[in-house]
Nucleic acid binder design. Sequence first.
DNA 1: TCCTATGGGCACAAAAATGTGCGTACTTAA
DNA 2: TTAAGTACGCACATTTTTGTGCCCATAGGA
Lengths: 118, 118
Amino acid sequence: MKGNANIIRPYYSEKCPVIKALEILGGKWRLAIIWELSHYKSLRYNELKRHIDGITNIMLTRSLQVLEQHHLINRTDYGQIPPHVEYSITADCQALLPALEIINEWGKTRIEVHRAQS
Amino acid sequence: MKGNANIIRPYYSEKCPVIKALEILGGKWRLAIIWELSHYKSLRYNELKRHIDGITNIMLTRSLQVLEQHHLINRTDYGQIPPHVEYSITADCQALLPALEIINEWGKTRIEVHRAQS
DNA sequence: TCCTATGGGCACAAAAATGTGCGTACTTAA
DNA sequence: TTAAGTACGCACATTTTTGTGCCCATAGGA
C-alpha cells in the first residue's frame, strides 16, 4: 500500500481526448468493424463476419455491443425467426471516417514495409 | 489440435491496413505519446513523462522503444552524463497527425458525453 | 553530506483482452 | 431426414498488456 493510494485521481482519459478515444476504439477488431460497415448502408451479422477474416463469434458480438453502447453503430432487429438483424454506423461515427481513411492509407505503407523486410 | 492447425494462413493484418496500423499504434499510451511529441520540436524523457499523466517509467520506455522500432519517433542521445536524450516524431509519423487531430476532436465530444451522464 | 535529477532496466505480479468449444431455437432447402 | 443458415451467449482457458517495486551510475546544488 503506498502513501496516497486512497486518493482517487481523475483518470487521464478524462483529460486527454486521444486516450479517451482509444478507450472506446482501441480493441483489436473495433476499427475494422467500423471500417467495414462504413462501406455499406448496412450489413447483417454473418455478412460482417465474412468480411472480417479471423474474427470469432464472441469477439464480433462483444465488439458490436460496446460500439452500440457508445452509439457508434445502430442495431436493427427485425424481430423475425430465423433472426434478422442489421448493423450500420451512426452519424457520430461518420465523423471518424476521415481519420480512418488516413489510418488506412498509412497502414498500407506499413504493410509494404513489412513485405520488403521479409 | 484442430484439423488444419498446421496450415499457416496469412494474418488478417497483412490484408487490412486498419488492423495493421492498430497493431503498431494500438497500445494504451502510444498515440498519446505521439500526440504530445507532435506539439514540440523535441522533448526529453522526463519532460515527456510529466506531460502524460499517469504513465509509468516502464510503459514510457517500452512505448518509446516500439515506436522507435517502427520509425515513428527519433531518439537522439547526446552521450552525456548525466544522460541527455531527446525524442521527436519522424516524417512518417507526421502523416498521421491529421488523423490524430480528428480523433482528438472526437474524443473531446466523448468526454463531454461522459460528463453529462454522471 | 544528502537530495534531487538525469534515463532508463529487470523480475515478477496483476489485470485486461482475446480465444475455444459448445449450445440455443427455429426455418428452409436438399 | 438431415444439413445448413439465422444471431448470438456462456464458462472457461489462454494470451497479451500493463503495472509494481526496486535498482543502476553520475553530477550539481543546498
